[in-house]
Design a binder for these strands. Structure first.
Lengths: 344, 344
DNA sequence: ACCAGCACTTAAAGCGCTTTAAACGAGCTT
DNA sequence: AAGCTCGTTTAAAGCGCTTTAAGTGCTGGT
């Protein structure tokens, strides 16, 4: 150790690391044998296997993905497009990682942001030669996704895409909202307002779920949908609007947890007791919603299961030759916390 | 369009896409020329250039990163390790993306989670042959990072790492907290409590900043530090503790915005007017803090500038041969919003 | 005419790995 | 002794690109 504090490598790829050939030379075998051993392909004798493994370890050999991808024409890479700002998607990524690892694939993440479009993110994934793409809540038109799906297996996670030949893994959003309404009605609520989440496919499903459930309980007349979007901001705004209108419902259901948190803050800030005077419910079971300071009743989307199913769908196409598209709809589950109670 | 909904590719890499050779054949040139044109290397004539570009476009040619990385021994990839759960890091990633793009590099993201250690995340990055690593708030011991830095240029973003030969880009955390204290004292506060953020390097710096600033104002006797951590949970807990103690200060400074939000909720929930009775300040200028429902006074870390500097540091090492390590310390800036006011 | 110099263009040798067909011995038959 | 099989190993041909030295055909100077 020279401790000069300035001995970091400067060149492109640093000192050349050991190659397959170096390992082979060390044990006096061909690179072919070493390759077979290292990939766990049956063939080499036990003795060879041990010697190779030892040599590789001694040399600190680590295969070069780039080279093996090129040679094998398999990258064993799944491309994941995310919105790096979404807490829920962050959670999905975590589960995708473990699921992919279990089946021997690696993930490459690409994010779309205000300054980076969805298609740029996808381009990047394609340039890495990902074998399949898992898109989290893609917003691109179905036709575009269908096109993409013709080049590479595509799994849409969270968003319904009909007739595009893609695989879809999602949870039954309408059912989720239905469960919320059932829960509230069960507590005795009737004046249940819904704060909408915009014009996306998911928002449509949830809104429909609200309508259907209200009608199912004979509350057609009580259906009341307020304009909102995906942010805390929207919840706050709608909350203030409700307060101003002087026509507070006994329960508010919002498109997602973020919106619910805005709503919560607006109402509490105005001295409204929750759940004493008004019950509030969100959707997503966001990390935020679990905090004791919010303690929000919400709906869990079973992130782990969705992730597992998405990876499974990819593997079925890649390794098991499935070619027909599949849609997997999971049942969401209500998580009752502290923001719901019988109406006063 | 056959619209059967089941025509997605099933094989490993889908139908083989056009190669350099195909483009070359189409214009009757060698692959060498095409490669030169496509990479914008000077040499080919204008006429050739045009024809190649057209042919490539017609064929929908997209270079194979894997192959070119292998051949050129340059991946032009920067590895970024993030904690996918952090909103602030998400923002950094966004800026890193644009900064990297400007200098012709691409990013590969790897995340560490509860189930995926920091070193696994780094291994992945290395396997992709990233030319430099940008680690967001790494927690590994300095010695480990120093070791890594011997293999590949490493930039620690946000965390101070002394004498390990790495580049560091961070903001002056002590100064940031100092600015907060100055602001509060300027408003007339004296009883200013600090809620700590644990035992990390960053927490240490901020705590020190608080102490120094208090002393600077002759408020040694008022120094009061409460145990906390990085979560909303902690803020909430400490807030309740303050309420119970019956000894409310006139201002509370917390380690980060998340903690501040917990604090805010706890105090408001107990009917304490903010900023009327107590002022609250966070740190990070988190997306959350900007919401009208929190409207938190906080300190901005200049995410964009930090990202730009980190990429610059990498490029200096990779393309400009710098070998001495560098530490870039940016000045944070106070963002005054609605949770601070003169004491009652 | 001849060659130097210039502007382009290209053949060919890899990059570090995978993969396939072929080679090799050793142990069996017949 | 020739022929077979079987288990193990390997030579060699790529994967799709980059890169370098060597080519080509010009022009213009002498």
């Amino acid at each position: 150790m020279d401790g000069t504090g300035s001995d970091a490598p400067t060149g492109a790829l640093g000192a050349s690391r050991p190659r397959l050939e170096d390992v082979a030379a060390r044990v006096g075998l061909s690179t072919a044998s070493v390759s077979l051993v290292l990939r766990g392909v049956p063939g080499p004798s036990e003795r060879t296997r041990q010697r190779v493994l030892k040599a590789a370890a001694d040399l600190g050999y680590r295969p070069d993905r780039t080279a093996s991808a090129l040679a094998s024409k398999r990258s064993r890479l799944l491309g994941v497009m995310i919105d790096v700002h979404s807490a829920f998607q962050a959670e999905l990524v975590e589960h995708l990682h473990t699921a992919a690892e279990e089946v021997g694939y690696d993930l490459v993440l690409s994010t779309h942001t205000r300054t980076r479009t969805e298609s740029t993110a996808i381009e990047t994934l394609l340039a890495f030669r990902c074998e399949a793409l898992i898109l989290l809540g893609p917003v691109a038109p179905a036709a575009v996704l269908a096109d993409l799906g013709r080049q590479v297996p595509v799994i849409s996670l969270g968003r319904r895409v009909s007739g595009a030949g893609l695989d879809v893994v999602r949870s039954a959003d309408d059912d989720g909202v239905g469960q919320i309404v059932d829960h509230l009605v069960g507590l005795g609520h009737r004046a249940i307002v819904y704060v909408d989440g915009g014009k996306g496919v998911i928002a449509t499903d949830r809104r429909r779920g609200y309508r259907a459930a209200m009608r199912g309980h004979g509350l057609d007349a009580q259906i009341r949908i307020l304009h909102g979007d995906l942010t805390e901001e929207a919840g706050d705004r709608v909350g203030k609007h409700l307060l101003d209108s002087g026509d507070l419902p006994t329960a508010v259901v919002t498109f997602n947890d973020r919106s619910a948190i805005g709503m919560l803050t607006a109402l509490r800030g105005a001295g409204v007791a929750i759940p004493g005077e008004v019950s509030v419910v969100g959707y997503d079971d966001d990390t935020l919603s679990r905090l004791t300071c919010f303690d929000l009743t919400t709906v869990s989307q079973e992130a782990e299961e969705q992730a597992r199913q998405a990876v499974l769908a990819a593997v079925e196409r890649l390794d098991r030759g499935r070619s027909a598209s599949r849609e997997i709809v999971l049942a969401p589950s209500l998580v009752v916390r502290g923001t719901t109670a019988p109406p006063r």
